[in-house]
Design a protein around this nucleic acid. Sequence first.
DNA 1: TTCGTAACGTAACGTTGTTAACTAAACAAC
DNA 2: GTTGTTTAGTTAACAACGTTACGTTACGAA
Lengths: 211, 211
Amino acid sequence: MGTKERRVREKLETRDKILDAARDLFLSEGYEGVTMRKVAEKIEYSPTAIYVHFEDKEDLFHQLCQEDFARLAQVFQSSAMPLDPLERLRFIGRTYVEFGIQYPNHYKLMFMTPHPPAELDERDHEILGNPEVDAYAFLKLTMQRAIDAECFREELKDAELLSQTVWAAVHGVISLNIAKNTDPWVDWRPVMQRAELMLDVVLRGLVKEGK
Amino acid sequence: MGTKERRVREKLETRDKILDAARDLFLSEGYEGVTMRKVAEKIEYSPTAIYVHFEDKEDLFHQLCQEDFARLAQVFQSSAMPLDPLERLRFIGRTYVEFGIQYPNHYKLMFMTPHPPAELDERDHEILGNPEVDAYAFLKLTMQRAIDAECFREELKDAELLSQTVWAAVHGVISLNIAKNTDPWVDWRPVMQRAELMLDVVLRGLVKEGK
DNA sequence: TTCGTAACGTAACGTTGTTAACTAAACAAC
DNA sequence: GTTGTTTAGTTAACAACGTTACGTTACGAA
């Protein structure tokens, strides 16, 4: 009968309520600022009810990250994506920076908060390396195409290394902006100007001379 | 009499013992992993004794940061600092990355954790903009020299903007390493390899063609 | 000798993540 | 319809945390 399925569905609904409440709190309070009791209070459950659905606080955090990663990867499935590999890299970088600026709290949660190495479960293996849902895989694929099209200098053949470097470049702009944009020590230039220069400089530094 | 000075000296010695014990623990355990009780136990004092010397845990950590960042600025006053502006920029970047790898917890607190806008007091104004103690000012000065020596393309004249971009580039390598280096999602290349490529690419992207 | 100061200890408070033990309701089997 | 089983959720509690109130003890000044 459908009773079993209804039970499963009801449990998932509760799980989602927890996730939604937790996201709100994590985004506004940060990882350390969130307590299991606050999450529970927000959905009017007892604190321990959360442990029926999640192993512990870290697990809850990890599940949230998964969802937000997927949302980022979706942005790359845009029809505006250029065909030329170099312009495609620039577009990826720009889109990524815009994502980080538009959702600074999501970004902080995903890429600026160290957390213990998460175990990869079977669900993860469906995502991992799939460019349609894994943003890093998409970058790497585009990078490989650029390498194959001989856009770059001869010694630059490692798509993994190049991807990590381009990622680090744009990540540097975003994360420095999030952590330090109100710091009076530095006379900051507008963040998009910094981002555009970064992409320009890095891509120039990668390509063959005269190309 | 010298008794007063002896008392002050003895207090400073205790303070240093706390700082030394705390540094060891912070580096091996990370900020959250360190407890006041562990620090106290290491120097065979009661946990509350620490509060005679420091306001709270964050104050203790912050004092440590001060010391180690002063050390960073000192490294830039090294005799090993190259004369050539471009090589000097590379050296600054490399030194900065090495620092971030050696003191990940300090780095995390200072550059990866959004702070409420810090008030500038009088002591800060002695540091601000002084290249001998302000690492960013030193970078900017070096950048201006490189601009004056016409190392870069003609349209790149804003030392502030260029400094922020170079800083963001190395910061990206360090902070991504700190936040995500144990993440099994990415097949990371060695961090120093990523740093060297980053510096290479960024400097190439800045300089005049054929130079 | 008395008094004040200041470094340090003891005990405790409120909060945290988490667990053990229980409750209550729904379902399956007879 | 009475069982037994499963399970989402609760209550109470634990150990560990940062921190504070308050007591103690040593010592220089008067």
